[in-house]
Simulated assay, not measured.
Amino acid sequence: MNAAPQTPDPRPALARATEQLAELLDGLRPGQLDAPTPCAEFDVRALLGHVTGVADRFANLGEGGSVVGPGVPEWAAGLPAGDWPDTYRRARERLLAAWRDDARLEAVVTAPWGTVPGRIALSGCVMETVVHGWDLARALGRDPGLDPEPAALALATAERAVPAGSRAHIPFDEARPVPADAGVHERLAAWLGRDPHWSPGTAGRGTGTA
Rank of each mutant, 00 (worst) to 15 (best):
52 T>Y: 05
80 P>E: 02
75 W>G: 14
65 G>P: 02
28 L>R: 00
78 G>M: 06
50 H>T: 11
203 A>D: 01
177 P>I: 10
194 R>S: 05
133 G>A: 06
200 P>H: 11
3 A>L: 13
28 L>C: 09
6 Q>P: 12
189 A>R: 13
3 A>P: 15
31 G>T: 02
72 V>I: 09
68 V>W: 05
93 E>W: 03
61 L>D: 00
111 A>P: 14
47 L>P: 09
156 A>I: 07
150 P>K: 07
141 G>C: 06
200 P>L: 10
16 R>E: 09
58 F>L: 06
92 R>P: 05
39 C>K: 05
187 R>F: 08
106 E>Y: 03
137 A>K: 01
93 E>Y: 02
181 D>W: 06
72 V>M: 04
29 R>E: 13
100 R>S: 13
129 T>G: 03
68 V>F: 04
166 S>H: 06
199 S>P: 13
88 Y>V: 09
41 E>N: 13
26 D>V: 13
81 A>H: 03
166 S>C: 12
193 G>R: 11
127 M>R: 08
23 E>W: 02
9 D>H: 05
5 P>T: 10
6 Q>K: 13
127 M>W: 00
62 G>T: 01
119 R>E: 00
108 V>P: 11
175 A>C: 13
45 R>V: 03
115 T>C: 10
103 A>F: 10
22 A>P: 12
202 T>D: 10
197 H>G: 15
139 A>E: 07
88 Y>G: 00
202 T>L: 13
22 A>K: 00
94 R>I: 08
116 V>R: 11
207 T>E: 12
87 T>D: 08
32 Q>L: 10
154 A>W: 01
77 A>L: 07
46 A>I: 02
61 L>N: 00
49 G>W: 00
33 L>H: 01
80 P>T: 04
158 A>L: 08
85 P>V: 08
149 E>L: 13
192 L>Y: 10
106 E>L: 11
9 D>R: 04
4 A>G: 11
32 Q>M: 06
110 T>G: 10
126 V>F: 00
178 V>F: 12
66 S>P: 07
142 R>M: 06
68 V>D: 14
65 G>N: 05
134 W>N: 03
135 D>T: 04
50 H>K: 05
21 L>M: 07
199 S>C: 15
61 L>V: 11
35 A>V: 07
202 T>G: 06
167 R>N: 12
97 A>D: 13
25 L>E: 03
70 P>H: 03
123 S>C: 03
19 E>C: 03
91 A>R: 05
210 A>K: 09
142 R>E: 08
22 A>N: 04
190 A>L: 11
194 R>I: 12
148 P>K: 08
21 L>D: 02
155 L>N: 03
108 V>K: 14
153 L>D: 01
5 P>R: 14
169 H>Q: 15
120 I>P: 00
49 G>M: 00
115 T>N: 05
67 V>A: 09
183 G>A: 02
59 A>I: 01
135 D>W: 02
52 T>V: 11
161 A>R: 08
6 Q>D: 13
1 M>D: 15
94 R>C: 09
103 A>E: 12
31 G>N: 11
